[in-house]
């Protein structure tokens, strides 16, 4: 039988938009990163599925995309969602903070946990 556990990881003002807090330990020694992306909070496991690097300590970036090579007429290279992607500091693999999805390897995901705001508290939940 699964049981939901809530952990208060901090106060909302500790993590303004664009910032994060590394919380250790959290279901293991590596902990989680709790991110504020434009006012929405997300929690991501702090172990990169690639080589176990400290994923949540990496730089934030966005999604770069285009429909065709730049030699094609009218091709436009877009950069969207700046701040919604975290790149592992070890080898630069990019992950979507909201979903844990790896942008360069669709079958690879990092665990994420629901985050709720209760009053001033940032609360991370997990099932066990």
């Amino acid at each position: 039988m699964t049981q939901s556990t809530s952990v208060v990881v901090g106060k909302v003002w500790e993590i303004p938009p664009g910032e994060r807090k590394i919380v250790v330990p959290f279901r293991g020694r590596a902990g989680i990163g709790v991110f504020n992306v434009g006012g929405s909070f997300y929690a991501v496991r702090n172990i990169c599925p690639h080589k176990h690097g400290p994923l949540c300590t990496g730089e934030l970036s966005g999604r770069v995309d285009t429909d065709a090579p730049p030699s094609s007429q009218g091709a436009f290279i877009s950069l969207e969602g700046l701040g919604e992607i975290v790149r592992c500091p070890w080898h630069q693999w990019p992950f979507e903070i909201a979903t844990g999805r790896c942008l360069v390897a669709p079958e690879v995901r990092v665990a994420t946990y629901p985050v709720k705001i209760r009053g001033d508290d940032v609360v991370v939940e997990y099932e066990e």
Partner: peptide, 10 residues
């Protein structure tokens, strides 16, 4: 081996 606290490899 990890620059964040904790790691899984012994």
């Amino acid at each position: 081996p990890i620059t964040a606290p904790g790691w899984t490899a012994d």
